[in-house]
């Protein structure tokens, strides 16, 4: 066991325990036990931030690599890391393609992680990791697995406000938010096949953050600042990256009001192939159109599907690539879980 005291910077918010675990693994490696590390999280959940911190703390021992697109040739991962013994690799989900013959690069990489004189600290998209762990048992190659936790409302608040001076932001309680109803009647479109018509069935939707606000206001506990971050926390599902994007979208500098934070519940309607493409994009976070075609084969038209996904506000397109839209992440995961495409 390593008993050295490990210093952790206070600058980073929310990952203290994870950093401690990684630093312990590094110390163990230096004393002769090789423990490869896998850092696993949803898109936008802060993997790269954590990796930056690890790199900063071990600057002279570490060499770092990142993949930004799918690696198709195993020669591309003959890494020039001979001089340093600890290797940081970001976005390892780019080492495979979900198709026949798409695992060679990954297999080659996994074999090279078994080298006793090197330690690999890797980051993975949660959905790619889960898939690969079920079908290839890649977890065996990484004895230390760190699943990044979801942030609490308080952590989201600290993380976002760390970028501003004290009292720089004005939190304004607005009438519009007060007027927002706790129980809303929404309409769900249902297709009636025999008549080829659509009817809207009413259903009840409860605004939990509004309800919390009313209750806490009665008890005179929560400030408007707390309410705003509670709402951001609910909408982002505790994902710090998504929370930051929602914050930036809702902020009209220097004023932020609760009514500006919108929970855009998605009514996703996709067929199976469209859902599968969405699953591929989610597993990679960002992927080129041609790579989607390669994975799915030529049996269905990728351009049409990408257009459909973009139209429903699920992905962002540009530069011949697709990226998961951060605000839609929560809805996408729920939808794909229902279909059992993500496990």
């Amino acid at each position: 066991m390593v008993n050295e005291k490990i210093d952790i910077s206070d600058e980073i918010i929310g990952f203290q325990e994870e950093i401690l675990n990684i630093q312990t693994a590094i110390a163990e490696f230096e004393s002769g036990h090789n423990l490869n590390v896998a850092i696993i999280s949803e898109p936008y959940a802060g993997r790269t931030t954590l990796l930056n911190e690890i790199e900063k703390m071990n600057l002279h021992k570490i060499i770092r690599f990142s993949f930004s697109s799918i690696v198709k040739n195993k020669d591309e991962i003959i890494l020039p890391y001979q001089s340093k013994r600890i290797v940081l690799i970001d976005d390892c989900q780019f080492l495979f393609m979900r198709k026949i013959g798409g695992f060679e690069v990954l297999e080659h990489f996994l074999n090279s992680t078994a080298a006793p004189d090197k330690m690999f600290i890797t980051t993975w998209n949660f959905y790619s990791w889960k898939y690969l762990d079920e079908v290839m048992k890649i977890g065996k190659f990484f004895p230390v697995q760190i699943n990044l936790p979801k942030f609490t409302a308080g952590q989201i608040k600290d993380s976002i406000l760390s970028g501003y001076k004290k009292e720089e932001i004005e939190f304004v309680e607005d009438v519009e938010f007060e007027k927002e109803r706790i129980i809303n009647f929404k309409k769900y479109p249902v297709a009636i096949k025999p008549w080829n018509k659509k009817i809207n069935l009413p259903y009840i939707r409860i605004d939990y953050s509004g309800l919390k606000f009313r209750l806490s206001k009665k008890e005179k506990r929560a400030t408007i600042e707390d309410i705003i971050f509670e709402k951001i926390h609910n909408v982002s599902n505790g994902n710090p990256g998504v929370a930051k994007i929602i914050w930036l979208r809702s902020l009209k500098y220097p004023i932020i009001k609760p009514s500006r934070i919108k929970d855009e519940s998605l009514n996703i309607e996709l067929d199976y192939n469209e859902s599968f493409v969405l699953n591929i994009i989610l597993s990679m976070k960002s992927i080129k159109n041609e790579e989607i075609s390669e994975i799915t084969g030529l049996d269905f038209e990728v351009d049409k599907i990408i257009f459909q996904l973009s139209k429903q506000g699920l992905i962002l397109t540009g530069d011949c690539s697709c990226t998961i839209k951060p605000e839609a992440l929560k809805g996408i995961i729920e939808f794909l879980k229902k279909l059992r495409m993500v496990w």
Binding site: R98, G102, E134, Y272, F276, W343
Partner: peptide, 12 residues
Amino acid sequence: ESVMTSKYVYVS
């Protein structure tokens, strides 16, 4: 690989 990459497969 054909089985494990199928869009219909479920593995746990």
